[in-house]
Structures are given as C-alpha cells and as structure tokens.
Amino acid sequence: MAQAAASTKRGLGTTERRDLWWVEPLAVGLGLLGFITYATWAAFQGNHYSFGPYISPFYSPEVFGDSQHSWFGPVPAWWPAFLPFSPALLILWAPGGFRLTCYYYRGSYYKALWADPPACAVGEPRGGYRGERSFPLIIQNVHRYFLYLAVLFLFFLAYDVWKALWFTDAAGAVHFGIGVGTIVLAVNVILLGSYALGCHSMRHLIGGRHDELKNAIFGRNCYNCVTVLNRNHMRWAWFSLFWVAFSDVYVRLCSMGVWTDWRII
C-alpha cells in the first residue's frame, strides 16, 4: 500500500479522466470555427454565388442582387453607402440563428468554445454560473421562432433545386437536365430538412407537448417520424453544416471556372 497525491484540485481541465477527453471539444470547436470563418468570408464576397441555374444556399433567397435569381432586382438605391452589401448578409441571420440556438449546438459550443464544462467530469475555468435562466443565454429560448424561419427556408432551397433542373442552352432555349450541381443542391435540401425537421422544438410542437399523442397536430405517425430524425440530430447537424458549405464551394468554384459542372442528363 502506498500513498498518492490527494484529488482536491479544481480549475480548468482538472480531472482524473485518462481518456482523450479533449479531442471531442477540440474537434467540435475547430469544426464550428472553421464553418463560421468560411461562411463569413463567403457571405461578404457578394460574387460568384450563382452559376447557370444554380445558386449558393448561402445566398438563397436572393432578395436583392445581380444574378438571375434575384427577387427584386439589384441592390436598391436607398441602401446606405457605408454599409457593405451582399445578398447573403440579408438572409444568413435566419439559418445562423437557428443553428446558434439549436439544442445540440448549444451543448456543443458551451463545451468547445466556452469550457462550460470543457468535457464531462472535467474542471471549469470559472466559478460563477448562471446557465440559460438569465440574460444573455435566456435568449436561447427563441429557438422555435428560428425553426419557423428555417422551415420556410427549406421551401426556398427546394425551389432552387427545381430551378436547378432547367438549363438554358446557347440558343436561349430552356431544357430539363440534371447536373452534378443539381444533385449537390438536392442533397443539401435533404440534409438540411433532416436536420431542421428533426429539431427538438419541432418534436415538441408536432406532438411532444401533448401527454396523449392522439392530440398531436399531424397525428402520432408524424411525431414518430420527427422522433426518428431527432435520434440522429447531431449527425444531421454536422452533415448539413458540412454540405451547405460544400454547396457554396461547388457553386463558387464552378462560377470561377475552377470546376466544371458535369451534366448527367
């Protein structure tokens, strides 16, 4: 029998854990920061966001802009000159807010970016703690309103896929077709749909708020479908995050002439 040091220490990273507990928060932090950096850069570019019938999901719906996808034409004259303009800046707050307030991402970035806690059973850097019951984090309760917007955006993105099926040839005639970009945008909608429709707030609103599922708004089968998606919410969150960025990269590089969009049909 031998004596060893006492375990009374507290503070950031203090733990008796032997596994690589820091790998997950590090990977999550790098993934989130990488996405935020790229999305911010892409949003401020204001160019190369459309190619033929394709539009980058970062820029859709294009309320004002120069591409053929624009709803109301180019940037309006009343837009203040001192404000930078990009069609993405008008809309990205909505999907961004949805992800920012998402239950999965909240748990992840509290750990990865705020060390609150850095990992399970690992010491924290701060003594005080207010959680989500007071300002500013009480604002996270707005999540369901961002969900409504996210569902609306799914319709816009699905419409973009529909438009991505119609190609204009050199003579100006419009033909049905499927390009790699069409598939990229379609996969994007599927992944974003699986993420948004499997959201915890959706699960609550679609039926979870009732003690008896017969009262669920679209029936118990609908609630069960959302529950199935919700079980893999983390995976859908990451797949959709990666793919939405990749969709922008694809459209951008095609538009810049770096990549060629192969036509399948």
């Binding site: 239950y103 748990g107 509290y110 609150d116 399970c120 059973a121 959680g131 989500e132 019951r133 984090l137």
Partner: peptide
C-alpha cells in the same frame, strides 16, 4: 422554471452519457 432551476441546464448531455 423557478424553484427547480431547469434553466441552469445547458444541455451538455453528460448525464445521458
């Protein structure tokens, strides 16, 4: 919401783990 403090939970899922 009040006495039981559910707002303190910040969903780190350690309990589930």
């Amino acid at each position: 919401a009040k006495a039981k403090g559910i707002g303190y939970c910040n969903i780190t899922k350690c309990c589930t783990k």
